[in-house]
Design a protein around this nucleic acid. Structure first.
Lengths: 222, 222
DNA sequence: GCATCGTTTTAGCCTTGGCTAAAAATATCT
DNA sequence: AGATATTTTTAGCCAAGGCTAAAACGATGC
């Protein structure tokens, strides 16, 4: 069985691997908040267990086995996030750190029980896809809100997980998955937006908009 | 914050302390499945943190601080056990090992959310009392089923947590907390019983009966 | 009161997963 | 290409929690 550290490394490597083919030691170290040298040592161990393929000075990639473990952890994480919101009354900005601990304390049986209790969900509260039990995961579709033209109608699909402050803020504005919105005005100088959402006009900074992904419903030029 | 090991040690010391004033190194080691020498080393550490009072060769006792941590862990354990049964469809013989992991991954906020979702319960699925948030715990009352005279009517209060096989067996027979039963016949040679429970006559070995505690409703001699 | 026996501690070692500082490899700039 | 800058690895260290084998302690029997 993988240790907590192992699960964290694999999950993080997978995350960084999206986009880049190989993950550098320093990028991984920075994102885990661990010294570069410690990461080098750990990568050798993971390589020895066949979880990553590691070439000194060339970064790492997950092996199939490593990817399976990474997805298993991610699945447990996202099931817990949804469970905390639906069944335990947590707000979506506080679930990440809870899930971060619970994911490592979850047996196969518990994972299955969560899945069942939630009705075999496909998305977590941030709109991120929950990997299936057999390690399949949907692509994150959706356009960045920043890319929408004025007048566009769209449905929020995903608010990128990350800063709790940002999530709390977006939540208060009604910018949550499934919400419909319309781009009312774009401010070129700083990339911020005015949008119509939940019957109200709201201002979104570029910082916020960058984390919001939407499905375009109608692109009506204004 | 205490580590997983620390929580396990404190919980176990508290358990062994019921009855005996001081807990010996070897008793603790045996019940934790850890070598005596390792336990000695750990006790010194715990003493250094003010969690136990430890006199070489004289065993340990929990300090008030240590007791508080032990009860906190026990509270989380029992809240999880009940939650797993009530909200996740687990049967009571499989919850111990799950709770054993989850208790260490539970924040203050999660503990409170579980408590609320369960309606501030006082007993876990085995009938054991759940410590309150401020560290109070009810005495385990109830007479051993083995001590009941023939003809006695009683209500099951508690089935001692332990062997999953025993729990599964008791559960199948309907010997669960809140169940009413009547002692029909006692077999002196091996201490086993015939009882009426759930409209049926059941045979309970002494081994099972020893783990069942009841409130006496009526002692009618037969 | 001394020898013996069981319990407990000490001594020395291991693995995991961290750290810093220094050395080596790769990348970049002119 | 050569010097310099950046990245990565190596070397050596630490704390937590385990282990075994040997020594010390405390209790018991005679």
């Amino acid at each position: 069985m993988p240790t907590v550290s192992t699960e964290d490394y694999l999950k993080q490597i997978r995350k960084l691997q999206e986009g880049a083919a190989r993950v550098s030691t320093s990028a991984l170290a920075a994102s885990l908040g661990i010294a570069d040298a410690s990461v080098t040592a750990m990568l050798k161990k993971l390589a020895g267990q066949g979880l990553v393929s590691y070439q000194p000075y060339q970064g790492v990639t997950l092996t199939e086995k490593g990817e399976a473990f990474a997805l298993r952890t991610l699945r447990r994480h996202r099931l817990w996030e949804l469970f905390l919101v639906r069944h335990l009354g947590f707000s979506w900005d506080r679930i990440h750190e809870e899930a971060e601990r619970l994911e490592h304390a979850t047996s196969e049986a518990l994972e299955a029980a969560l899945d069942r209790a939630l009705g075999f969900p496909r998305l977590d509260p941030h709109g991120d896809p929950i990997p299936s039990h057999d390690g399949r995961i949907e692509e994150c579709t959706g356009a960045a809100l920043t890319a929408l033209p004025t007048g566009a109608l769209a449905r929020v699909r995903r608010v990128a997980d990350g800063d709790p402050e940002l999530l709390r803020h977006a939540g208060r504005l009604g910018v949550v998955p499934e919400a419909s919105l319309e781009v009312r005005e774009r401010f070129g100088f700083d990339g911020s937006l005015r949008v119509r959402v939940g019957g109200r006009d709201r201002f979104l900074s570029a910082e916020v908009a960058r984390h919001v992904f939407v499905d375009l419903l109608e692109a009506r030029d204004g």
